[in-house]
């Protein structure tokens, strides 16, 4: 069972490595969107510090939204996805493997890069740590939920906009607890409660979304 999981992760990582530009685009998008906000609202340090958690989280959310359409698109186009559906291995595990690889390629770089952007927004050191931690817990949930949307909109006209309409409402709890953790830390309340709830979001997404994604893929390929 685990062999198929790792085989899928390894394959997708290898594919991503062969096409490094795709990874870079998502990351660049994240940095650019986050950098646009100070230009829009003015460089006042206090304002930026209070805005930073929300801005960085929304940027991460949009970056995920932009790249998640690619999760199944290539496999769908060249027929690999059909073979995956026909395989005797459980589709849920294959989906989980794909989402894991996707997170390693697009989510993890965001987590690593976020502290740098935090410094740009003049966040205090403690808050930067909480920000990284909240992104590390939250972005896997974003990837998992995004997988459902990507599978549902597979091969549809105007899939990108539809995807946003479908999954952005589902992202609300992750956004609230993720940005809230940083905000609570800055307010001196301690980020523990928010991080625990964020972890709960991640775990429930882990339990539900591979199943829902697998079901959606079967519907799409019927």
């Amino acid at each position: 069972m685990l062999r198929i999981l790792f085989a899928v992760v390894r394959r997708d990582l290898l594919l991503a490595w062969r096409r490094r530009a795709d990874v870079f685009t998502t990351l660049a998008f994240f940095v650019i969107v986050a950098s646009l906000f100070p230009l829009g609202v003015g460089p006042e340090a206090n304002l930026l510090r209070t805005m930073a958690p929300g801005v960085l989280w929304v940027s991460a959310l949009l970056a995920t939204l932009l790249s998640v359409t690619r999760l199944f698109a290539a496999d769908y186009a060249d027929g690999t996805l059909e073979q995956m559906l026909l395989s005797t291995e459980p589709l849920t595990l294959i989906v989980l493997g794909k989402v894991m690889a996707y997170w390693l390629v697009t989510g993890l770089p965001l987590v690593v890069l976020a502290p740098l952007l935090g410094v740009q927004f003049d966040l205090p050191q403690g808050a930067i740590g909480v920000l990284s931690l909240s992104l590390a817990l939250g972005t896997p949930a974003l990837s998992l939920l995004g997988g459902i949307g990507a599978a549902l909109t597979l091969g549809l006209r105007g899939g990108g906009v539809l995807l946003a309409l479908l999954i952005l409402p589902l992202y609300v709890p992750v956004l609230i607890f993720g940005a809230g953790a940083v905000g609570a830390d800055a307010a001196g309340l301690g980020a523990g409660a928010h991080l625990l709830l964020l972890g709960a979001c991640f775990l429930s997404a882990l339990a539900v979304s591979p199943l829902a994604t697998a079901a959606a893929l079967r519907i799409a390929m019927e």
Partner: peptide
């Protein structure tokens, strides 16, 4: 699938908000 995932998410959204 969307409606059911949404239904699971509605209480979570409600309490988070």
């Amino acid at each position: 699938v969307v409606a059911l995932v949404g239904a699971i998410n509605v209480p979570i959204i409600y309490f988070s908000v």
